[in-house]
Amino acid sequence: MLGNIASFLSSGQNVAFFICALLAIGGAIFMLSFTKVVHMLTALALTFISLAGLYVVLEAEFVAVVQILIYAGAISILMIFGIMMTKHQGEEQMPKRPWHNGLLLIGAAALFGVIFFAIQNTELPSGTFQSAEDNTLEIGKLLFSAHVIPFELMSVLLTVAFIGAIIVAKREED
């Protein structure tokens, strides 16, 4: 058992993956546990950034940058504007069931045990993964050659949705 842990920690890539995975899981747990919306949003941003770190470790740099730009940046700012523009009551809810957290801890530990047992008993095929020389270049080639029609349809769909949101906002203003 200790030999497996030592061989796991021997690679910096494994350590970085483990740290990013723990931060992503921790951010998700904090996001579900916090009661204030701004704190929940901060924990969600931590989860998004940790996922981008996982993508970097997995050599998917383009997806990592998109993750940071779209989710950690744009979605988080959009949620902050949504919070700022809506009215909130400042009342805190008291926990209704004090034993709820204990059951959650037992359930999480049981789920961790089942997943750990499944991972330890799984036979994974060995081999090396040969990634492309430049992932971003390959994604660009595929996006603008083989998948150009879906790409353009998505841009038209997003433009129509944006115009529809403006029209709905104008109607509510009048």
Rank of each mutant, 00 (worst) to 15 (best):
W99K: 08
F117S: 09
I106G: 05
E92A: 15
P98S: 13
Q120I: 07
R97T: 07
P95M: 08
V114C: 08
F116Y: 11
R97K: 11
I106Y: 04
F117G: 04
A118T: 08
G102P: 01
P98Q: 09
G102Q: 09
I119N: 01
K96L: 12
L105E: 12
A110S: 04
L111H: 00
L103S: 06
N101W: 12
I115K: 01
W99Q: 11
G102W: 12
R97G: 02
I119T: 03
L111N: 00
A109S: 11
A108F: 11
G107M: 07
A109N: 03
V114K: 06
L104H: 07
M94A: 15
I115R: 01
G107I: 04
I106W: 03
A109P: 00
A110C: 07
N101D: 13
I115M: 11
T122R: 11
T122N: 10
Q120P: 00
P98R: 11
H100R: 10
I119D: 02
M94S: 14
R97E: 13
Q93H: 05
G107R: 03
Q93D: 02
K96D: 10
T122H: 13
L111C: 07
Q120S: 14
G113E: 00
A110G: 05
F116P: 00
R97N: 15
E92Q: 15
A118Y: 03
A108H: 02
P95C: 04
M94Y: 10
R97L: 12
A110R: 00
I119L: 13
Q93K: 05
F117Y: 11
V114N: 04
W99I: 08
L111R: 00
V114F: 13
Q120K: 08
L105F: 13
A108D: 01
T122K: 10
L103I: 05
N101Y: 14
W99R: 13
A118N: 05
Q93W: 02
Q93V: 03
I115Q: 05
G113P: 00
I119K: 00
V114A: 10
F116M: 08
V114G: 05
L103G: 08
W99N: 10
A110T: 02
L103W: 05
F117V: 01
A109L: 12
L103D: 03
I115F: 12
A110E: 00
A110H: 01
L103C: 05
G102C: 05
F117T: 05
F112C: 10
E92G: 09
P95V: 09
G113I: 01
